[in-house]
Design a protein around this nucleic acid. Structure first.
Lengths: 161, 161
DNA sequence: TCATAATCGTTAGCATTGAAACGATAGTAA
DNA sequence: TTACTATCGTTTCAATGCTAACGATTATGA
């Protein structure tokens, strides 16, 4: 929050400024803005070539690493609902980047598997994605990168994100 | 990235592990996970009562602070496209929380203005939202909050986010 | 065994999101 | 004035995303 906004907030909420934790507001604002910018940059500069969204890419990444992943675990990993995973899986199947496979031991469970075409896309895309990752945080030293990762991880753990 | 994934990546990309900047990967992963968790928590625990999304709320917040804001500035502030602002404005108008007003000096420009009903919603919602903000970062000390804000701000500045 | 509960993925319905195309308006130059 | 260009917001269309309801499958317990 900008300093000049304090009085505005104070006036609008009719609450004393002391009751607002400005540091928390700043962290949350900067955290979301950085993440939003990161996503937009990656989708625009890297993923658009293959018509993939950030979430689609993160799902392909999981499949690339683990070969076969349950729908529920994909949702947990990407932080989206299982309905979203179902929709995105449909799109990825249409592009022949993955396919569904029902678990034989528990027929309620559906696994998603990467196709060879999907693997090729990731082999081309991941290096470019990684370049973007490096670029985004290049203004921070390695020590600062370790520091911010540790702080973010504590927020994640403490909130079960 | 988990340590045991290094070899997997190394094998899949056919690239030496030295060419992967693991610190950058960790920062990006934790940054997006924290932001995603933050958004989901707020939409679920605070905004769902009024059927508002994170972006809808951030637009209402801007209107609350600035009274009247151009469509383009709303898009820049929220980090979404102007088409999204147009759609969300339609929804907010339907809920009678804001209305459009064409600029008289430049009829290409449309300003969005908060209604009294919209102001009442914000007066009720913002304190709850702020509680969530405080809660999310409560595991960090004030010094750590200043630290992470500074680091995030540098990322934002350096990338023009 | 059989009824009940729990879990899983999909579907339906609606809001959000962005790229591209589009009309309307304003600015610029001949 | 008259083109040409630039800017702005909306519309179109497809994909993403969530909640709730649903059907199918498995687990539990009497």
């Amino acid at each position: 929050m900008l300093p000049e906004e304090k009085d505005t907030i104070n006036q609008l909420t009719k609450a004393p400024i002391e009751s607002l934790n400005l540091h928390s507001i700043t962290v949350v604002t900067n955290l979301y803005r950085a993440a939003q910018g990161l996503r937009n940059k990656m989708e625009r500069e890297v993923l658009a070539k293959h018509g993939l969204s950030w979430t689609s890419f993160s799902i392909l990444y999981d499949l690339w690493i683990w070969e076969s992943v349950e729908t529920k675990k994909l949702a947990l990993s990407a932080g989206v609902s299982k309905a979203t995973i179902s929709n995105i899986t449909n799109t990825l199947e249409r592009k022949e980047l993955c396919f569904r496979k029902v678990d034989n031991r528990d027929r309620r469970i559906t696994c998603v598997v990467l196709t060879n075409k999907g693997r090729k896309v990731m082999e081309e895309l991941y290096p470019r994605f990684h370049e973007g990752e490096v670029e985004v945080v290049s203004s921070l030293s390695v020590e600062e990168q370790k520091l911010i990762s540790g702080l973010l991880r504590r927020v994640i753990r403490e909130n079960d994100f």
